[in-house]
Amino acid sequence: MAGYHDDKDQVMRRLRRIEGQVRGLQRMVDADDYCIDVLTQVSATTKALQSVALQLLDSHLGHCVQDAIARGGGEADAKVAEASNAIARLMRA
Rank of each mutant, 00 (worst) to 15 (best):
L49T: 00
M91P: 00
R92I: 10
V38E: 14
T40G: 13
D67F: 13
D67N: 09
A2N: 14
D9G: 06
S59E: 12
Y34K: 13
A83D: 00
Q21S: 08
D7C: 04
H60Q: 05
Y34I: 11
V65S: 03
V80W: 01
E82S: 02
G3F: 01
R23H: 10
D30I: 11
V11N: 09
E75D: 07
K8F: 14
R89W: 03
M91V: 11
A53P: 05
R92W: 04
A76F: 06
A86V: 00
Y4E: 14
A83V: 01
S84R: 14
Q10E: 12
Y4H: 11
A83Q: 00
K79V: 12
Q10L: 10
A2Q: 08
G20A: 07
R23A: 08
G74T: 08
G72H: 12
R71Q: 10
T45R: 07
D30Q: 12
S43L: 10
M1C: 15
S84K: 13
H60M: 03
C64E: 13
A81E: 15
D7V: 08
R23Y: 15
Q55W: 08
A68M: 00
L25V: 06
A81P: 14
T40M: 09
I18A: 05
T46D: 13
V11A: 08
R92C: 04
K47F: 02
A44K: 07
C64M: 13
V42Q: 07
A78L: 15
R17A: 11
S43R: 13
Q26R: 04
A2E: 12
A70D: 15
D33E: 14
R14E: 07
R92M: 10
D58Q: 06
A2R: 13
Q55L: 12
Q50A: 10
D9S: 07
R14Y: 02
S43D: 11
D30M: 11
L39K: 05
K47E: 02
T46C: 10
D33Y: 04
S59A: 09
